[in-house]
Design a protein around this nucleic acid. Sequence first.
RNA 1: CGGGAGGUAGUUCAGCCCGGUAGAAUACCUGGUUUGGGACCAGGGGGUCGCAGGUUCGAAUCCUGUCCUCCCGACCA
Length: 490
Amino acid sequence: MAKEITSREQDYSQWYNDLVLKGELADYSAVRGCMVIRPYGFALWENMRDNLDRMFKETGHVNAYFPLFIPKSFLSKEAAHIEGFAKECAVVTHYRLKNDPNGGGVIVDPDAKLEEELIVRPTSETIIWNSYKDWIQSYRDLPLLINQWANVVRWEMRTRLFLRTAEFLWQEGHTAHATAEEAVAETVQMLDVYAKFVEEYMAIPVIKGVKTASERFAGAVDTYCIEALMQDGKALQAGTSHFLGQNFAKAFDVKFLNKENQQEYVWATSWGVSTRLVGALVMAHSDDDGLILPPRIAPLQVVIVPIYKGDDSRSVIDEKANKLTKELRAAGISVKFDNSDNRPGWKFAEYELKGVPVRIALGLRDIENNVAEIARRDTKEKKSVSLNGLSDTVRDLLEAIQQNMFNKAKAYQQMHVTKVSNWEEFKKTLEEKGGFISAHWDGTAETEEAIKEATKATIRCIPLNNEKEPGICVFSGKPSVQRVLFAQAY
RNA sequence: CGGGAGGUAGUUCAGCCCGGUAGAAUACCUGGUUUGGGACCAGGGGGUCGCAGGUUCGAAUCCUGUCCUCCCGACCA
């Protein structure tokens, strides 16, 4: 049995890797645990990034940029924070190379040792709070609502393209507030922004919740998260928003003078999503024929494939296709007319691999009848449509695909939240069905750890607005006040 | 950091056991015929066999070391 599960996991790993590589999203790089994001994959990330950035600005945030390097001493100012990150930090110890006196290569110049080592940021709380200390004097300086788009490095033991890489791109918001209530409201607001983005743009339904103490961000008072379900039944943390209390304000001595002329520590939040979302997109929607990208963020929404028959047809079809391309672009749809020298069948397969939502095939026969064959990637349905008002037809279809992808993923998610009442059911469900398991938990870290030890499942979150429902813990049999969501996770 | 499998053409891999001229498929280039689901014919270019030592007349092949990749485990706010 264990063997079968292993091979199933391997199959999914292989499936996922193929999707990313053949879909031309990313490649492995020469650097351990890092990846090269290819133009197509980067265009996808840019679309995600631009939409998120707009949503951040609509909620009053501004962008800034802080340094890549963090003095070692900064990290040690917040005890829990260093505890959480110390094991995975890349450290800069020298600032110069020199020619190897014993050979042709270069060596690190031992004379160029840094007095204080620099840490390549695993996250930027410390370097940012060092600046905030100087920026915040009075309640008039608050709230401070700043986001940065950056790369961070976490030296993970084991990496997977997009889902966990040693270096990744992300955004991190860092805000400072006059009151705890305001900071909590900000934390929840940004969680809502993330949930809205992931559901409405990426077409992936999420469960909003709060982490247990053991899964909490290092240095946070509360960690809120959105959890998504992948097609192999594993959960993926798609975004987090942390209420940091006054931990970082105290560590970096950031005080403000309130209206009553009293010194107070500020209240903080931080929140982030990363290129991991691209991995989520791949895992949540793809099939055996390749990627399936949601229209709202697809780098390419429509591809037009000409079906030539002899050289005579070429100019007629090209002319018509160029006209349609122009028409669709004018309607705000991203289109590629692929008149390259490959055969139609090759192109069909190619754009399916890359997840282009809509394909239009155009041949002489179609033009004579004033129609085109339009195919949707999500369901693979094909039909003939009139060329009159094609941009409206395509726009409606793109919207329908977006909706259908979300509905399908939502139905899958709902089918995979299972309420269980005892330990046998818990194990059986996890093994045979996967997904989220809604179960009573006695609230202790010991039980959480024991369940993880036994099944690899962790508490993904305590859903927001969770019903209070007395019961007994599925593992320990002790009293419980509510159900929580367990799952195996990425 | 433990266990397993690998590193040979752009890619996927064969060759290795049993040492003796560097291979296939695919991709790429040229010409032609084609085009409604990954075309065909002909010709062509492309590799310090991961790296470093060793054994040998001779190493992709054997030995030692080392680096890297993938899978599993440990680790992973």
